[in-house]
Simulated assay, not measured.
Amino acid sequence: MGLLSNRVTVESLKPGDHIYSWRTAYVYAHHGIYVGDNKVIHFTRGRGQEVGTGTVLDTLLVSSSPKRSDAPCTECNSMLSESHGVVSSCVNCFVAGGALYRFEYAVSPAFFIAKARGGTCTLAVSDPADVVVHRANHLLGHGFRCYNLFKTNCEDFAIYCKTGLLVADQGVVGQSGQAVSIIGGPLAAVLSTPFRLITTNVYGMAVTAVGVYCASRYLADIGNRRDVIKLEVEDLTAGLATGRVHVVEENETQLAMPSPS
Rank of each mutant, 00 (worst) to 15 (best):
L57F: 08
L3Y: 03
G164V: 12
I222G: 01
V180E: 02
I222M: 01
H84C: 06
G2Q: 09
G239C: 01
G177P: 03
M79F: 01
Y147Q: 10
K14P: 11
L191S: 01
S192E: 06
D17L: 02
S81H: 04
T120V: 15
L197D: 12
K162P: 15
D169R: 14
A106W: 13
L219K: 03
T200F: 05
V212A: 03
R225W: 10
S181W: 04
V35Y: 08
F94E: 15
S81G: 03
V8S: 04
Y147H: 07
G85H: 06
C90R: 07
P72F: 04
V190L: 02
C214W: 01
A106F: 10
L166E: 14
C93Q: 09
L165Y: 08
P72D: 10
T53E: 14
T53V: 11
V8D: 08
G243P: 04
N77A: 04
Q175N: 12
Q175D: 10
P109W: 00
L139R: 08
F195W: 05
L165F: 06
P109T: 06
K115M: 11
F195V: 05
L240P: 01
G223E: 00
C154I: 10
I222V: 06
A168Y: 15
S216A: 01
G119S: 11
S261Q: 13
A206T: 14
A116K: 11
Y34P: 15
L3E: 11
T199S: 12
D127E: 12
N137H: 15
C161K: 13
P260H: 05
C73D: 07
L13M: 05
W22D: 15
G52I: 06
L123D: 00
G204D: 13
V167P: 12
C90V: 02
T253I: 11
V87Y: 03
F111V: 14
K14S: 07
V125C: 05
D156M: 02
N6W: 07
E11A: 02
I41D: 08
V10C: 03
I33D: 13
A106V: 14
V210W: 06
G171K: 13
R196Y: 07
V207Q: 06
A241K: 09
V131T: 14
D235S: 02
S64C: 11
P194C: 00
T163M: 09
L165P: 14
N77R: 10
A189R: 09
G211I: 07
E11F: 01
L166W: 08
D70R: 10
A124C: 08
P66M: 04
R226Q: 13
E249P: 09
G2Y: 09
T53F: 04
V91A: 01
P186Q: 08
V228F: 00
T120K: 15
E82P: 07
V8N: 05
Y28V: 06
D58W: 07
P72Q: 06
T120Q: 15
V62E: 13
L61P: 12
W22E: 14
R225A: 05
A188W: 03
A71K: 11
K115L: 03
I229D: 12
A71H: 09
H138K: 14
T74W: 01
V180Q: 02
T122D: 00
I33L: 04
S216V: 02
T9P: 13
